[in-house]
């Protein structure tokens, strides 16, 4: 188990190393040294500043020295400065990250519970009225773009509610959990719902299919032959195995989402990583873009390690070999 995890973590570190090389090649080597210095310096820089920056970034030295300098900065949490805000990139990321994390984790919990429960129900009552209802609803939300659902929710629960004098949900923005937990929660309800409904659908289908397979397994029949209650057979015996593909999908989705829920953040005006990334791209704010790319990659890598760890907990055949 420990060896397995150590191997996965080492693999993760290696992947991150590759990511830094790719980022370095794309943003520093690709455009050529003159361009990089000019871009880094910002639009209104004098030639002198550009030269200074070129020197500071060691653009006049061999490539491996440049890369080492870049990596050294990364490892010390130094991602440079946003030329647009003038702020250190790390502090921009530190502000944006909790926003995306709150959004992603909350939505993930909701869609996981919703998706798995409706999927189980759908599988156990295969071809019943429930199954059909759940299937239709799942397809409906599955094919709905998140910005449409987001705007729809805003229209009803913000616009119409406000007209009716009910101020339950804010129209945009984000309140930090540490600042005001209630406001934090109110602000997140609609974005959570948007993300969760759109994603839950996929999980309903996934859980249903996986459950239908597992319910045909011999060991589920064994569980029934032992005289166990139907609930125990379904949740303790069948679902335990059926969750495996769900967990791996969940890890991937969550990892991607933590790197920035671009559309949802934009619709609800939440200053998370996705929103920040869109702005950085508009402003050609290179250091911020690089920072977000690295954070997003790290999120995917960490999510994958967590999925593997969870697999090992679920399946003794992995744990013991």
């Amino acid at each position: 188990m420990v060896r397995f995890l150590v191997r996965r973590v080492l693999l993760g570190v290696f992947v991150m190393f590759v990511v830094t090389i790719v980022v370095f090649v794309i943003f520093f080597v690709g455009p050529g040294s003159a361009d990089v210095a000019r871009t880094m310096a910002g639009r209104e820089a004098t030639p002198k500043t550009v030269a200074l920056i070129a020197h500071r970034l060691l653009l006049d030295r061999p490539i491996y020295v440049q890369y080492w300098h870049f990596l050294d900065g990364l490892l010390h949490g130094n991602l440079g400065y946003s030329y647009y805000h003038g702020q250190p990139v790390t502090s921009i990321l530190k502000q944006a990250f909790p926003v995306t994390l709150s959004l992603a984790l909350g939505a993930a919990v909701i869609w996981l519970v919703l998706g798995v429960l409706s999927g189980v129900l759908s599988a156990v009552r295969n071809r019943s009225f429930w199954d059909r209802t759940v299937t239709v609803l799942a397809l409906f939300f599955y094919s709905m773009p998140s910005f449409v659902l987001g705007l729809l929710l805003l229209y009803v629960f913000y616009y119409q509610f406000t007209l009716a004098g009910i101020h339950l949900f804010p129209g945009a923005g984000y309140t930090y959990l540490t600042a005001n937990p209630l406001k934090w929660f109110q602000g997140l309800v609609l974005p959570w719902t948007t993300l969760a409904l759109v994603s839950a659908a996929a999980y309903t289908r996934l859980t249903r299919g996986s459950m239908l397979d597992v319910l045909n397994e011999d060991y589920v029949r064994t569980a029934r032959s032992k005289g166990l209650s139907e609930n125990r057979v379904i949740y303790r015996h069948a679902l335990r195995s059926a969750l495996t593909p769900v967990v791996s999908q969940f890890g991937i989705d969550l990892g991607v989402l933590v790197g920035g829920a671009v559309i949802t953040e934009t619709v609800f005006g939440m200053p998370g990583l996705g929103f920040t990334a869109v702005q950085a791209i508009e402003n050609q704010d290179l250091p911020v873009i690089i920072g977000i790319v690295i954070v997003a990659s790290a999120a995917v890598v960490v999510a994958n390690i967590l999925v593997d760890a969870f697999y090992a907990v679920l399946d003794p055949r992995i744990r013991l070999h």
Binding site: Y219, L228, S241
Partner: peptide, 27 residues
């Protein structure tokens, strides 16, 4: 009824199935 049958399964009638490899829960 399903409930009555459950009290017979296991307690009154034990069952062994064809394929021992897949009849025990792997987890």
């Amino acid at each position: 009824s399903p409930k009555e049958l459950r009290s017979v399964r296991g307690a009154q009638v034990g069952m062994i199935f064809q394929d021992p490899l897949s009849s025990l829960h792997p987890y």
